[in-house]
Amino acid sequence: MNRTMGMLGSAITLISVILFAVFMLIDYSSAAYAVCIVLACGYIIMASSFGAFAAIGFEAAKLAGIAFAIIYGVFVMLVYYAQITTLQQNDLTEQAIQILDYQKFGLFFAYDLFGYAMLSVSTFFIGLTIVPKNKVDKILRTLLLFHGVFTVVGIIPVLGLFNSDMVGGEIIGVLVLEIWCLYFIPICILSYQHFKQQEIRSV
């Protein structure tokens, strides 16, 4: 079951990332928001599956990776669920829109980036649990560890680099997300292969 769940989580995450990239390019924001919720669910399954196959001696990194995955899931689900419900289904004041619409670079924009920072921390700890047995594992471990660098996105709201008056801010935001998608797609593919080649463990 652990092997199957790992492959399933990786597949869900992969498909979600690809769809998110496409929806962002064609400016279909509602679908992009919805698929991000599915993406978070897929990654939590994937992270938990990595934990199930973690070697003895890596318990702390395993638990940290799963914990940060859950924190990531809570924050991004909160942000994107609000986008497709409260924001789009209600006649809100300009002040409320400034807070809830993450494209306005307000509070929910900060929550969104914090969530992705937690995702990066999660992948770093997950990477630590992988003991490479082949080329796939080595590349996957390197990508997961290096993905931890994306934690710096959590600093962006603190520095105030993006604001509602910024010219071209939305385009830059989309470009950054597309780059992230291109980076994370190989992680999903290699994770699927990693779980596929795991031996089924008896309980």
Rank of each mutant, 00 (worst) to 15 (best):
Leu14Gln: 06
Gly51Phe: 06
Leu128Trp: 02
Ile171Val: 15
Thr142Gly: 03
Met5Ser: 10
Met77Ile: 08
Phe184Gly: 05
Gly51Pro: 14
Arg141Cys: 13
Ala61Phe: 02
Leu190Trp: 01
His147Gln: 12
Gly160Val: 11
Met7Asp: 07
Val176Tyr: 03
Leu140Val: 11
Ala96Trp: 04
Ala117Ile: 04
Leu78Ala: 07
Tyr102His: 04
Ile99His: 02
Ile56Phe: 11
Ile56Lys: 15
Cys181Tyr: 01
Gln89Ala: 06
His147Lys: 01
Val79Ala: 00
Leu8Lys: 02
Met46Trp: 02
Thr123Arg: 01
Thr4Cys: 09
Ile139Trp: 02
Leu78Ile: 08
Gln198Trp: 04
Tyr192Ile: 01
Thr86Gly: 03
Gly127Thr: 12
Met7Thr: 07
Tyr192Met: 06
Leu39Ala: 04
Phe150Ile: 12
Ala11Trp: 11
Gly65Cys: 10
Ile70Ser: 09
Val35Arg: 00
Phe195Trp: 12
Met118Leu: 08
Glu59Tyr: 06
Met166Ala: 14
Ser164Asp: 12
Arg141Asp: 11
Thr85Asp: 08
Ile187Asn: 10
Val38Ser: 06
Met46Arg: 06
Ser49Thr: 05
Tyr72Asn: 11
Ile97Pro: 03
Ile97Lys: 02
Gln103Lys: 10
Ile56Asn: 13
Phe23His: 01
Ala52Leu: 14
Ala31Thr: 10
Val176Ile: 13
Thr129Trp: 00
Cys181Gly: 14
Phe195Ile: 12
Ala64Asn: 06
Leu190Met: 10
His194Met: 04
Gln89Pro: 03
Asn90Val: 15
Lys133Gln: 15
His147Met: 10
Gly42Ala: 11
Met5His: 13
Ala67Tyr: 12
Leu190Ser: 07
Tyr183His: 13
Leu175Glu: 09
Gln89Phe: 03
Gln83Pro: 00
Leu87Asp: 05
Ala61Glu: 14
Val79Gln: 00
Val136Asn: 14
Ile130Pro: 06
Leu177Met: 11
Leu39Met: 15
Pro186Gln: 11
Glu178His: 11
Gln88Ile: 01
Gly6Ser: 13
Ala32Phe: 00
Ile189Asp: 10
Gly154Ser: 08
Asp91Glu: 14
Phe53Cys: 12
Leu19Asp: 10
